[in-house]
Design a binder for these strands. Structure first.
Lengths: 165, 165
DNA sequence: GCAAAACCCATAGAACCCTAAGGATATTGA
DNA sequence: TCAATATCCTTAGGGTTCTATGGGTTTTGC
């Protein structure tokens, strides 16, 4: 039960090859570049793609909901949506029941785009994971999800310490 | 021989929870935030930190070498070094044997900083990996390294195929 | 030698993302 | 009721990173 508790000592972490931060940054940036290279011909930037994908799953959500799903701050979401509106991929639709809220809706053009772009993620994922055993990939996804959960606690508002109480 | 070849089908990748790009982006950003929260009191931003850590391992390298090590484009390195110079962490030193090259050297202040900042990576890494088995973490690092290698090929200049030696 | 190529750093311009603070609307509680 | 609080979006300002391009410097090839 006692957790293995496996911290590398600081000396080892001087070598960034061992750091979660370094490894995930390189992976994220490489992945992002590989994606954008393929989506740009369709007129979709990397930043736009991230939001479009979520809207394909659930259209008409509010900006705040979208922020939570995509994993960006709300100010960032505002910028991204401005960009999507400029490109004609989405429209802002004020809520009729709560004038604070604004729903984001895909345009017709954006909906048809899904069929073109979705295979691209699959392609880049396949490229990225080439030569890696299915079993190891499953472990990889599970660990990464756990890491994100661990760090999400840290990111929570510092005042929320009790939460329960 | 025959690689398991485990691509998820496109439909599954519509859910970003399964996408390498999504998972690594969230991890990278969370990690970066957790780091910066701790280094900012020392006057070091997240971007500066990445370069300082490499310089602690190998001081006096050229800007191009530093770019390779840190994993950023050279234009990005220029910006980062400008920032480090402004903050008094490094100095530019033109090479005496090749006037194209510029070596980057840590200032005295920056060297003493190492003792303060290195434990911080260890702390954040420990936080991020809490509750994860050592064995799984090893798999995680191995897979992530492989993914980076796979994507690096994609990013390489299409002309550089041999590199031989 | 010397022109062509390679190499190294820098600038320009833009995209992305953040924190901090503000404005408008809705809800809560005395 | 109505002031305090919470919620939701936005703006302001700055940092990080990219691609594309240019300006010096060195090396290469004839």
């Amino acid at each position: 039960m006692a957790n293995p508790d496996p911290p590398l000592d600081p000396a080892q972490l001087a070598d960034p090859t061992n750091s979660i931060g370094y490894l995930t940054r390189i992976a994220f940036r490489s992945f992002s570049r590989a994606m954008e290279r393929r989506t740009l011909p369709f007129g979709v930037s990397a930043g736009q793609w991230r939001f479009l994908r979520h809207l394909w799953m659930e259209d008409g959500v509010t900006q705040r909901q979208l922020s939570h799903k995509v994993g960006t701050r709300e100010a960032t979401t505002v910028t991204a949506i401005n960009s999507l509106v400029r490109s004609g991929w989405v429209e802002r639709a004020p809520s009729r029941t709560d004038r604070r809220k604004i729903h984001i809706r895909l345009t017709g053009r954006a909906k048809t785009l899904q069929a073109d772009l979705l295979p691209i993620v699959a392609e880049v994922n396949a490229l990225a994971t080439r030569g890696i055993a299915v079993r190891d990939l499953a472990t990889f996804r599970r660990v990464l999800t756990q890491i994100n959960a661990n760090l999400a606690e840290e990111a929570a508002d510092p005042l929320v310490q009790g939460e329960d109480v």
